[in-house]
Computed example of a mutant assay.
Amino acid sequence: MELFLVMICLLHDVFLLAAAGQETAAPDVPWSQNYAILFGQDHIQFLNQGTEIQLSIDQFSGSGFRSLKTYGSGFFGMRIMLPPGDSTSIITTLYLRSYANKHDEIDFEFLGNSTPPYLLQTNIFTDGRGGREQRIRLWFDPTKDFHDYRVLWNQHQVVWFVDDLPIRVFENKVNIGVKFPVQAMQIEATIWTAAWASPSGKTPSWDEGPFRAYFQGLNIDGCVAQNNTIATPCFGSNFWWNGNNYWKLDPNQLKAYLDVRSKYLDYDYCTDGPDHNPECQTQYIG
């Protein structure tokens, strides 16, 4: 575990240095600068001069917000603290999605439970096809403090990060017939409930509620899509997250990625059900 913590610090420094001199993320900004309410207005509260937002859910309603603009590439994410206690079947999400008939989507879904650890489920939709779930057990208690959850999306790969550690990679393999997300997408965050999120199919323990999730770090590093539908004009090299440093994991990131998967992977669609070749045949294992 000590080695693992050292690696986290090292990767954090490496990632910041890679971005330095290209673009510096703004400090915390008011929520209203980049987002609007999606649903559940009476279940939303703004904190710390509007730089933090609380989403809540009870037996009557959940809540959510979305970005004002649509994006075609970027390095997206927030700091999130999840609901404590018995959060069985409560789902807190952060994701990108388009609104075409056959949509693209990139998901973080935090599946509540009666006891730790939380399960973090990731998924990706391309051209309307999903069913690519992977789940990891978080190695910390995400209800005690804020943690960073981010997605890198460029023309070469989609990478999910937890506190700067890569936990999943989806490579661009259009050359062998695998669809890649190329639709412009909005950023959305929600809290809601579904029985499938509980291993036993239980409904939430509403006596434990209302359940509250908190979001900080509301600045956006992304390319705004001009026509709100097509992402590819945002794949240019003028954006730092499209540079060749971000085309694949570097050796340190790959080592950390494989370490996370060996210790905390709970489910991978690539090893369950029908054969998903060729998209699962990769050094990154899906």
Rank of each mutant, 00 (worst) to 15 (best):
L3M: 02
V6Q: 13
V6H: 14
M7R: 11
L11A: 00
L11R: 00
H12K: 10
D13L: 05
V14E: 07
A18N: 10
A18G: 05
A20W: 07
G21Q: 03
Q22R: 13
T24L: 12
A25Q: 11
V29Q: 09
Y35P: 04
I37T: 10
I37K: 04
I37H: 02
D42Q: 14
H43G: 07
I44T: 12
I44G: 00
Q45D: 11
G50A: 02
I53Y: 01
L55P: 08
S63G: 08
G64M: 01
G64Y: 04
F65V: 11
F75N: 06
F75M: 06
F76G: 02
M78V: 15
I90E: 05
L94A: 15
L94V: 15
L94K: 14
Y95R: 06
Y95H: 15
L96W: 08
Y99L: 13
K102A: 15
K102Y: 11
K102L: 12
H103F: 13
D104P: 04
S114L: 09
T115L: 12
P117A: 09
L119Y: 12
Q121E: 15
I124V: 15
F125R: 00
D127G: 05
D127A: 14
G128W: 08
G131W: 12
R132T: 12
E133G: 12
K144N: 09
K144S: 14
H147L: 06
Y149F: 15
V151K: 10
N154G: 05
Q155H: 04
H156L: 05
Q157L: 07
Q157K: 01
V158R: 08
W160C: 00
F161V: 01
I167K: 11
V174E: 10
N175M: 02
P181D: 01
P181Q: 04
Q183E: 10
M185Q: 08
E188C: 03
A189L: 14
A189E: 09
T190V: 05
A194M: 07
A194N: 06
P199H: 02
S200T: 15
G201H: 08
T203H: 05
P204G: 01
S205C: 11
W206P: 03
E208G: 09
G209N: 06
Y214H: 14
F215L: 13
G217N: 00
G222A: 02
C223I: 04
A225N: 07
N227L: 06
A231S: 07
F235W: 14
N242V: 10
N244K: 14
Y246A: 06
W247D: 08
K248F: 08
K248S: 11
N252Q: 05
L254D: 00
Y257H: 03
D259H: 06
D259Q: 04
K263S: 12
Y264S: 09
L265S: 13
Y267K: 11
Y269S: 07
Y269G: 02
C270A: 07
G273M: 02
N277L: 14
N277P: 04
N277W: 10
N277R: 14
P278C: 12
T282N: 03
Y284I: 00
